[in-house]
Amino acid sequence: MNDKTNYPVSNNRPLTITIFLTTILIASSLSATSLKLKPSINKILKKIDKQQTIEKDVTAKVTILQQDIEQGIKQMESIYFAKGSTDQFLIVMTAPESEKGNGYLKADDHFWMYRRNTRTFQHISRDESIAGSDANTSDFETPKYELQYKGKKDSDNEDIIQTVNLGKIPAYKIDVSSDLPNVAYPNLTIWVRQDNLLPLKIQNKSYSNSLISTQYFLKYSKINDKFIAIKQMVIDNFEKGNKTVWEITDITFSPIDNHIFTKAYLENLSN
């Protein structure tokens, strides 16, 4: 999923959108009692899937700090509204200065790009492509770890789950693999917290089992009894030096009013 940032994206706009749409991770509520027994690998994967499901309505502020060996450092900041049920979204950039106030509005097949300095809405009705790029809606589908991956089993057909400490945090470490087509990383190593199974670190590995990238879940918060990974980082292990940090703040799940998804509102937000 986060591999996207490492790909050549010919256009900055879809890159931004892609990142936003795949970045909000929400954990469902869990009972506070800690788990005494080792969970099954399947349960861990299920938990991660559940956590990656986007809620119906999300409003949040997303900050992305990106370091690319070649392109240097970029910081982007935006406000993001998404209505899961209708596939509508509105994104307003708040940083950097050159992008500030620019926005994107999507409803049905229509997509508008708002440029603050000219106050124009450019209407784009090209089917399935966003801003003429290769990005399309299928890119935003969340992975289903539970269906895609299988855990390693020992000779007794028991799941191999290591109990380790990730730093000071007691964690379970599991190795999973997939032989299904279209699963980008056929091998993963996952660390989850022992107490609530929230993922802490995921290593994405290639078919030949070499490390491609590592995803760190740096900070979780609990909002409305839901766990949210409010800070994440992805390190590119294949091409060392590329790093991306996401931070989500000001998150709400309250239903978003339809008036948000209008040109008028975007213009009002922007300038």
Binding site: D3, S178, P181, N182, V183, A184, Y185, P186, N204, S206, Y207, S208, S210, I212, F238
Partner: peptide, 15 residues
């Protein structure tokens, strides 16, 4: 040199 590719099955592979 290391090469990263997406193979025919859509999986990431390296060599």
């Amino acid at each position: 040199v290391n090469i990263r590719a997406t193979n025919v099955n859509g999986q990431t592979n390296t060599g």
